[in-house]
């Protein structure tokens, strides 16, 4: 094993071009487990911690340009207004110690369906800017996940930025695990209302071979909200609509039975989380406090 310590981005790209098998390490929260337990012996480890800009972010007009190494704890603390879904998801990541080290780049690089950032990125809308010595490109988040623990990166490419659309409406993230802290998702659900475009986006984690959006559910809800004039009249979502949305969300799942949970439970839990997160976001959009019942419903 060799340890590469590029001092800057260009050097990192050159090293990755020269050693395509080099495995980037930043927070180390996935990779070091694999090394410690002898599950993986990369030929080269490439430390990205020295590249300062990867740990920085910039809030632009429409998007946040997020460095892949920005630790989850900083996202929670500093980007709660711009990226509320991702901030909530960041808070559910493992433990405080892990949140201090891990960043979204690691979730994307590993591309595990259980990565907590994915549903939030899918729901918010994002592009992953990747670069190699050959040049750079932006991969829409919807095209990024290509298989179980596989992503759209070429072997010489590194993740430079994640461009995430700033929230134009309420966002929520919810994750089911069998412990009240420090738990890997049995499944997770992200929801973002986009009042500017009168659309709804979702993201589902750990309930399919890759993180997925529940497109049919999104389309159904977008249409239902539109038809009912809900964006204008701000009335409550009819329970039947919420139910249908939740069921369609579960329909987007293709889960497995594993040691963390049954496929049937995962579908069920996605239904519940979809319904609840819709309630929370829509109440927030309407400016309704949680415990008001909102007798008026958009029809």
């Amino acid at each position: 094993m060799d340890f590469l310590r590029p001092a800057g981005w260009e050097e990192a790209l050159a090293a990755k071009a020269e050693h395509p098998t080099a495995v980037p390490i930043a927070g180390g929260t996935d990779l070091m487990v694999e090394i410690n337990f002898d599950h993986r012996r990369p030929e080269y480890l490439m430390d990205l911690n020295r590249i300062v800009e990867l740990g920085e972010w910039e809030v632009g007009e429409d998007t946040v340009r997020l460095g892949p190494s920005v630790p989850y704890s900083r996202i929670m603390e500093h980007l709660r207004a711009e990226l509320p879904g991702l901030a909530l998801a960041s808070h559910t990541v493992a433990s405080p110690q892990i949140r201090n080290r891990g960043g979204v780049g690691g979730n994307l690089g590993t591309a595990s369906p259980a990565g907590d950032a994915h549903p939030a990125l899918l729901a918010a809308g994002a592009e992953v800017e990747v670069e190699s010595v050959r040049g750079s490109r932006r991969i829409p988040i919807d095209d990024f996940y290509t298989g179980v623990k596989r992503n759209a990166l070429a072997e010489d490419e590194l993740i430079k930025w994640i461009h995430i659309r700033k929230a134009d409406g309420p966002q929520q993230f919810s994750k089911v695990g069998t412990r009240n802290a420090m738990v890997i998702a049995v499944c997770a659900f992200g929801l973002a209302l986009h009042p500017a475009t009168r659309t709804v986006r979702t993201g589902i984690g750990s309930a399919a071979p890759t993180p997925v959006r529940a497109r049919e559910a999104e389309e159904f809800l977008t249409a239902a909200l539109d038809e009912g004039g809900c964006w204008e009249n701000g009335r409550a979502v009819p329970p039947a609509v919420a139910r249908q949305f939740a069921e369609l969300a579960a329909g987007a799942c293709n889960p497995i039975d594993d040691v963390r949970g049954s496929a049937k439970y995962r579908r069920h839990a996605v239904t519940v989380m979809a319904r609840r997160t819709l309630g929370w976001t829509w109440d927030e959009f309407r400016g309704v406090r949680r415990d008001d019942n909102g007798s008026a419903r958009c029809a």
């Binding site: 340890f3 390490i25 180390g28 070091m32 487990v33 410690n36 911690n49 110690q97 080290r101």
Partner: peptide, 19 residues
């Protein structure tokens, strides 16, 4: 294995020595 790394609490088992 929690230590402070540049002031921040981290799991030292997940920090590669070279880092």
């Amino acid at each position: 294995c929690t230590v402070r790394l540049d002031g921040v609490p981290v799991c030292s088992c997940l920090v590669a020595a070279g880092q």
